[in-house]
Deep mutational scan, measured.
Amino acid sequence: GKMTGIVKWFNADKGFAFITPDDGSKDVFVHFSAIQNDGYKSLDEGQKVSFTIESGAKGPAAGNVTSL
């Protein structure tokens, strides 16, 4: 299901971020390909987002990341 959280930090050079979920679970890795914005895919620290949890090769990662 959809979860919500806050972007903890975003590394534009490497194209990934971490989200701190609102439910208090541990921070979730985000690859820029999961960001659903049109055009430039970036996130801002402190931004509120919704996302799903996908199981990636290196463990859980956020999918369908959308700005709220």
Rank of each mutant, 00 (worst) to 15 (best):
F51P: 00
H31P: 15
I19K: 00
A62Y: 08
V49P: 00
D38K: 04
I53V: 08
D38W: 07
K14H: 02
L43M: 06
Q36I: 12
S33Y: 07
G24R: 02
F51G: 00
F10I: 15
T20P: 00
K14M: 05
N64E: 13
W9D: 02
V30Y: 06
N11T: 06
G39N: 08
W9F: 12
K2E: 11
G59C: 15
V49H: 01
F32Y: 13
N64R: 02
F16A: 02
G15D: 04
D13W: 06
V65Y: 01
W9A: 04
A12L: 11
I53M: 11
K58F: 15
K48M: 09
Y40W: 12
V49A: 01
W9T: 04
G46S: 03
H31Q: 14
G39S: 09
G56T: 14
V7I: 14
P21R: 01
G5L: 01
N11Y: 05
A17W: 05
D44M: 12
F29R: 08
D27V: 06
V49D: 00
Q47K: 07
K41F: 12
G56Q: 09
D23T: 04
G5D: 01
L43A: 02
F29P: 03
N37K: 07
P60G: 04
T66Q: 11
K58T: 15
S50V: 12
D38I: 09
S25D: 05
N37E: 09
I19L: 04
K48P: 09
E45K: 12
D13M: 06
W9Q: 03
K41Q: 11
L43Q: 01
F51I: 04
G39R: 05
P60E: 10
T66L: 03
N11F: 06
I19C: 03
F18S: 07
N11G: 04
S33R: 05
Q36H: 12
S50R: 06
A12E: 09
K58E: 15
K2G: 08
G15L: 10
N37T: 11
F51V: 03
F32A: 06
N64Y: 05
G5C: 07
Y40V: 09
I19F: 00
P21I: 05
A12G: 05
V30T: 01
F51K: 00
V30N: 00
G15C: 15
K48I: 08
H31I: 10
S25N: 04
I53D: 04
D13F: 06
S25M: 03
S33T: 06
E45A: 13
P21T: 04
F16P: 00
L68G: 15
D13L: 10
F10E: 01
K48F: 09
A57V: 14
Q47L: 08
S50T: 12
G59M: 06
K14A: 02
G39C: 14
A34N: 13
A57L: 14
F18D: 01
D44G: 12
A62G: 07
S25K: 04
